[in-house]
Simulated scan of single mutants.
Amino acid sequence: MRARTDGVSLDPICGKPVVEQDSASSEYKRRRYFFCSKRCKERFERRAERLRLQDLARMGALFSKAQVQWGVA
C-alpha cells in the first residue's frame, strides 16, 4: 500500500512487506497495491472500497486538530 523507494511495499491486508517485482498486484482507483499471497489479494478485492475509506479517514484524523475517537458505526 505505502510504496517505498526500494521496490518494497506493504500488503494492505496483513501489513507484511512485499517485493513489488515478485508479488501479486491489483489496481484500484488508479493506485497499484501489492500482496504477499493470493489470499490477501482476494480479500482486498472483496473489501477494497471499505479499506480505502478507512485509510482516508485515518489520513484525515492526522490533520485534524480535534480529538478523534475510533469506533464502529
Score class of each variant (00 low, 15 high):
Arg2Ser: 08
Ala3Leu: 11
Arg4Ala: 12
Thr5Trp: 12
Thr5Val: 08
Gly7Gln: 05
Gly7Ile: 02
Val8Ser: 01
Val8Glu: 05
Val8Ala: 04
Ser9Met: 00
Leu10Cys: 08
Asp11Tyr: 01
Asp11Met: 01
Asp11Ser: 02
Pro12Gly: 05
Cys14Pro: 01
Gly15Lys: 06
Lys16Asp: 11
Pro17Trp: 04
Val19Gly: 00
Val19Asp: 12
Val19Ser: 01
Glu20Tyr: 00
Glu20His: 00
Glu20Met: 14
Gln21Gly: 03
Gln21Cys: 00
Gln21Asp: 07
Gln21Ser: 15
Gln21Phe: 09
Asp22Ala: 12
Ala24Ile: 08
Ala24Phe: 06
Ala24Asn: 04
Ser25His: 13
Ser25Leu: 03
Ser25Ile: 00
Ser26Lys: 14
Ser26Leu: 06
Glu27Trp: 02
Glu27Asp: 15
Glu27His: 11
Tyr28Trp: 13
Tyr28Asn: 09
Tyr28Glu: 06
Arg30His: 14
Arg30Pro: 01
Arg30Gln: 15
Arg30Gly: 11
Arg31Val: 07
Arg32Gln: 14
Arg32Asp: 09
Phe34Ile: 00
Phe35Ala: 06
Phe35Lys: 04
Cys36Asp: 14
Cys36Val: 10
Cys36Ala: 08
Ser37His: 05
Ser37Arg: 02
Lys38Leu: 14
Lys38Asn: 09
Lys38Met: 08
Arg39Glu: 15
Lys41Leu: 15
Lys41Gln: 15
Lys41Thr: 11
Lys41Asn: 06
Glu42Cys: 01
Arg43Glu: 14
Arg43Leu: 15
Phe44Val: 10
Phe44Lys: 06
Arg46Gln: 15
Arg47Ile: 08
Arg47Trp: 09
Arg47Thr: 13
Arg47Leu: 13
Ala48Cys: 05
Ala48Phe: 05
Ala48Leu: 06
Ala48Val: 02
Arg50Asp: 11
Leu51Cys: 02
Leu51Gln: 08
Arg52Tyr: 12
Gln54Cys: 06
Asp55Lys: 05
Leu56Met: 10
Leu56His: 07
Ala57Tyr: 11
Ala57Cys: 07
Ala57Phe: 09
Arg58Pro: 00
Arg58Gly: 02
Met59Gln: 11
Gly60Leu: 13
Ala61Val: 01
Leu62Gly: 06
Leu62His: 13
Phe63Asp: 05
Phe63Glu: 13
Phe63Leu: 10
Phe63Pro: 00
Phe63Val: 03
Phe63Gly: 15
Lys65Pro: 10
Lys65Thr: 10
Ala66Cys: 02
Gln67Lys: 07
Gln67Val: 09
Trp70Ala: 02
Trp70Cys: 01
Trp70Ser: 04
Gly71Glu: 13
Gly71Leu: 09
Gly71Ala: 10
Gly71Tyr: 10
Val72Tyr: 06
Val72Asn: 11
Ala73Thr: 07
